[in-house]
């Protein structure tokens, strides 16, 4: 059964003629990794904002575990591209931040932090400050922080968007292993086709003006990675390449339709 359900969402920003989001429905279950793919301005962040409870939809509704979502909540932890960590806290305290807010006692916090840092490969940098880390390590801290809190799902807005290609690929694999171990549903936004294809259990392709879902597919490559297949083998598989080209073509077709 799905945890998060979004039904027929629409968002029109004040003073804006056309909606930023229209007729968007999606579901996210415990083991799902739903990826929203689309060019800038197609409403991806708006959609995430609604799911997180930051933005009230003009139409439709979101529910989590049967309860309507009307505000941010601990069961839906958000990871942003950057700027979301607290530079005055060290890495361990950043990761413990959610638990501290929720009043979890210190001994338990330390245990969770140690486990989570281990999981994201940052066991040695707990005492460092976030501004002393590389971009990739900072994103690991962000992911660790979201997992350590008592979240049931993760909402990620272009979490690897600011990273170089090499680090990005490492982070995608890290995310899959975290997803496997932590057993959380993940909703992830990206404008990178390969990333979307590689990670998604379900991929929704979005299009701007108004922001909407134009295609849904179930690529299944992340499952193959979990089953032990090599990344390069997956990404160079003819099936992977064919899907990548098909998505690219439909993105360009959208562009041309708009221009016409």
């Amino acid at each position: 059964m799905s945890l998060l359900q979004a039904h027929n969402l629409g968002v029109t920003y004040p003073g804006q003629a056309s909606p930023a989001l229209q007729h968007v429905s999606l579901q996210l279950g415990e083991g799902d990794l739903v990826v929203a793919l689309g060019p800038s301005g197609c409403g991806k962040s708006t959609l995430l904002g609604v799911l997180a409870g930051f933005i009230a939809p003009s139409e439709g509704s979101v529910s989590f575990d049967g309860q309507p979502v009307v505000a941010p909540g601990v069961e839906r932890a958000v990871v942003f591209q950057h700027d979301a960590l607290l530079p005055w806290l060290n890495v361990a305290d950043n990761v413990a931040f959610g638990l501290k807010l929720q009043g979890v006692d210190k001994a338990r916090r330390q245990q969770v932090v140690a486990d989570t840092l281990q999981l994201v490969g940052l066991a040695d940098v707990g005492r460092k400050y976030t501004w002393q880390l590389s971009g990739g390590m900072r994103q690991r801290v962000g992911i660790a922080r979201a997992i350590a809190s008592q979240s049931k799902i993760l909402l990620m807005d272009e979490p690897f968007g600011a990273l170089d290609a090499f680090t990005r690929e490492q982070m995608q694999q890290l995310l899959l292993s975290v997803w496997q171990h932590a057993g959380r549903g993940i909703f992830l936004i990206t404008h990178d086709i390969e990333e979307a294809l590689f990670l998604a259990t379900e991929l929704v392709l979005m299009s701007p003006g108004p922001g909407r879902i134009v295609q849904r597919l179930r690529p299944g490559f992340s499952q193959r990675y979990r089953d032990g297949e090599d990344v390069r083998a997956i990404k160079s598989d003819p099936a992977f390449i064919a899907l990548r080209e098909q998505l690219l073509r439909s993105l360009f077709a959208q562009r041309q339709a708009e221009a016409a």
Binding site: A52, G53, F54, A71, P72, G73, V74, R76, A77, V78, V79, F80, Q81, D83, A84, L85, L86, W88, F97, G98, L101, Q102, G142, R145, A146, S149, Q150, S151, L155
Partner: peptide, 26 residues
Amino acid sequence: VSLVRQQAALSLGASRGQLLRYVILP
């Protein structure tokens, strides 16, 4: 104070007061 930093804190369970004390003031 960066909006995403505040939103991230809210999604980790921060109340209004906690947001002020742990995110906005520092």
